[in-house]
Computed example of a mutant assay.
Amino acid sequence: MRATLELGEELGYARLSIEAVAARAGAGKHTIYRRWTSKGALFLDSLLSLNEPGLDYPDTGDVIADLRRQIHTAVDLLSRPPMGPLYVALLVEAQHDPQVADALDERFIAPQAEKTIARLERAREQGQLAPDFDLDLAMAILSGPLYFQHLIARRPLTHDWVDRLIDTLFAGMGPR
């Protein structure tokens, strides 16, 4: 997996191959294919093996501060190598490989969404959010602009931009 990440950084995902990974790792190509069915599956496992810290939500009692801290951490990870470019490459691959898309959702996106929704549920129970606000929709509203800004508009994700997003969202989510 380390060889996959190194080559992913050096060559980019498009030029990455199982053969190159096998050569770098000193392993046989068949050894790799016994464990991973595709380059995308190997790449996903390799990226998730980085175990980047800080993507869990704190619970300070202030949901806005907690969201800011967690999303700032995520933005910081996406803005620098190796995580940023490698994650973008993985998202691109997921658009072409349904197995990679399903695995990415199951192993990273859905668990992160569950953590966000759980934090929002606690905030709602504490009266920090409107009791009838759709938390799944809140998750989509929080994450959608981040992906749009980073992947489509290709503009930097900054703490200031995240703060404006959170402030705008909470203007509509707060208790009435």
Rank of each mutant, 00 (worst) to 15 (best):
M1L: 11
R2Q: 14
L5A: 07
E10F: 02
L11N: 02
G12Q: 01
Y13V: 04
A14M: 08
S17C: 07
S17M: 04
I18S: 03
I18P: 04
V21Q: 02
A23G: 11
G26A: 07
G28I: 00
I32L: 13
W36P: 03
T37E: 14
T37Y: 06
G40Q: 02
S49N: 03
L50G: 07
P53Q: 05
P53N: 06
G54C: 01
L55S: 04
Y57C: 05
Y57M: 12
Y57L: 09
D59A: 13
D62N: 09
D62Q: 04
I64S: 06
I64D: 11
A65W: 04
D66R: 01
L67F: 05
R69Y: 00
Q70W: 00
I71E: 09
I71D: 09
H72F: 08
T73Q: 05
A74M: 12
V75I: 10
V75W: 01
L77C: 10
L77W: 03
L78N: 10
P81W: 01
M83V: 15
G84F: 04
L86V: 08
L86R: 02
Y87S: 14
Y87C: 11
A89E: 03
L90T: 02
E93Q: 11
A94N: 04
Q95P: 07
D97C: 05
P98V: 08
V100R: 01
V100N: 05
A101G: 07
L104T: 08
D105P: 11
I109R: 04
P111K: 08
K115E: 12
I117W: 09
A118Y: 04
A118L: 03
L120C: 08
E121L: 12
E121N: 06
R122F: 11
R122E: 13
R122N: 11
A123D: 07
A123V: 03
L129R: 00
L129D: 02
A130W: 10
F133S: 09
F133Y: 13
F133M: 08
F133W: 15
D134S: 08
L137Y: 13
A138K: 00
A140M: 06
I141M: 14
L146C: 08
F148R: 12
H150P: 07
I152G: 13
A153M: 14
A153H: 10
L157Q: 05
L157K: 06
W161H: 10
W161I: 12
W161S: 14
D163A: 10
L165K: 04
L165W: 05
L165N: 06
L165T: 11
D167T: 07
T168A: 15
T168R: 03
F170Y: 04
F170E: 00
A171L: 15
G172F: 09
G172N: 09
M173H: 03
M173C: 08
P175V: 00
R176I: 05
R176V: 10
